[in-house]
Design a protein around this nucleic acid. Structure first.
Lengths: 208, 208
DNA sequence: GCCTCTCGATCGATCGATCGATAGCATAGG
DNA sequence: CCTATGCTATCGATCGATCGATCGAGAGGC
């Protein structure tokens, strides 16, 4: 059984992802959730509160998963592979959440935005640590760690905008491809074979 | 001298990029342009017409520049480097245009969206051709041309969201870095040195 | 006397949000 | 067992504000 509260959140997720926060009206939200617009307010604060809640839920999970990755792995290469798998998998499996998080930050008031951005920064700090360590240890070789990190994050986030579960590439294979692309981009020394996927950490279960 | 029409377009560009299409009101637009909301309509059709015009202008330039790249270069490697330079440079120099194009497509009605998406697809077709050719000729080595193309485009587009002209990396150097990252990601055979920038085509002037 | 440009006033529609009321269900008091 | 009380869930009606857009009018140059 799904509760009305869950239906409200689901409706908001779908509509915010599809039409954007400002493009979604309270009445559309209510209709999608199967409620009147008045009843909506029994399950949420303001419309912005609802958006923040969706973002926080999504980012909390991502941050926790990233922390788990750092705990489960030691060397920068396997950590990076695990982070890429995590990011690609979660963006492909939850495109609505991640699209809302990535695209609707601008709709938040300054205070709420700061809160959400702080969470996002905490997540990206894991990437920063891994890439910096890899550079310091000589496992990676790039001119700028900051540039490489941003390039990698944007590249992996894009998956949420085009991945189709019914498409030619299954998700696990896609995550492996991205891990290989990321290692090559970083100049990882293990990347000598130009075409095959890299199986640095094949027996780790999907962390999301 | 700047005409009122130019000021309207500039205001729309800034506000659509900052607050989004649906987050920008006609009256904000007018205030930023230094006009009344009624006068606005002397220089535009509907608000959506204005958005489409901004997108088309930006995409037309991008498509023309990509076509010029294909004309000016023959082999896939130098073509790809030129495309990356073009994309990164234009996204860094015109972050407002590119953010509007990349983020506000969802605000368009189906017909207008189809028109804009067709333009964007025409641009991306240049990337597809270059990557497919490079794979066929053995210059690149990736599992999936489609995956690599999307990863590259997302990675390069992200520049518009964070590049700071006053930051530590100047734009030409950044474009070179991205060209190097892209070649490594594609498994280009020339990418043997792991750290230095690649100067495959250093004497081509910036095409945007 | 047209043509370009600008504006105040205002249109109907929709916005996010709140109100008081009602129905259903639980639990406690007699 | 009955009913009084209180809590959860729901809604129609409506609030003031703002939305995108239009109107007729005026100002100024050609």
């Amino acid at each position: 059984m799904t509760t009305s509260g869950e239906r409200v959140r689901r409706a908001a997720l779908e509509l915010f992802a599809e039409r954007g926060f400002h493009g979604t009206g309270i009445r559309q939200l209510a209709e999608r959730a199967g409620l009147s617009s008045a009843s909506l307010y029994h399950y949420m604060g303001t419309k912005e509160d609802l958006l923040v809640e969706l973002m926080r839920t999504s980012l909390d999970r991502l941050v926790a998963a990233a922390d788990a990755v750092l705990l489960a792995h030691d060397d920068p290469t396997s950590r990076l592979v695990a982070l890429v798998r995590l990011h690609v998998t979660s963006h492909a499996e939850r495109p609505l959440e991640t699209r809302v998080v990535d695209d609707e930050v601008h709709a938040l008031s300054p205070q709420r935005r700061a809160e959400v951005v702080a969470l996002r920064d905490r997540y990206e700090a894991a990437w920063r640590e891994v890439i910096d360590d890899g550079l310091a240890q000589g496992a990676f070789a790039v001119e700028s760690a900051a540039v490489a990190r941003r390039a990698l994050l944007e590249m992996c986030s894009g998956v949420a905008r085009w991945f189709d579960p019914a498409g030619p590439t299954a998700l696990p294979a896609l995550a492996e491809q991205y891990a290989g692309l990321a290692l090559r981009l970083l100049g990882a020394e293990t990347a000598t074979d130009a075409s095959g996927p890299r199986r640095v950490d094949a027996d780790t279960p999907s962390p999301v």
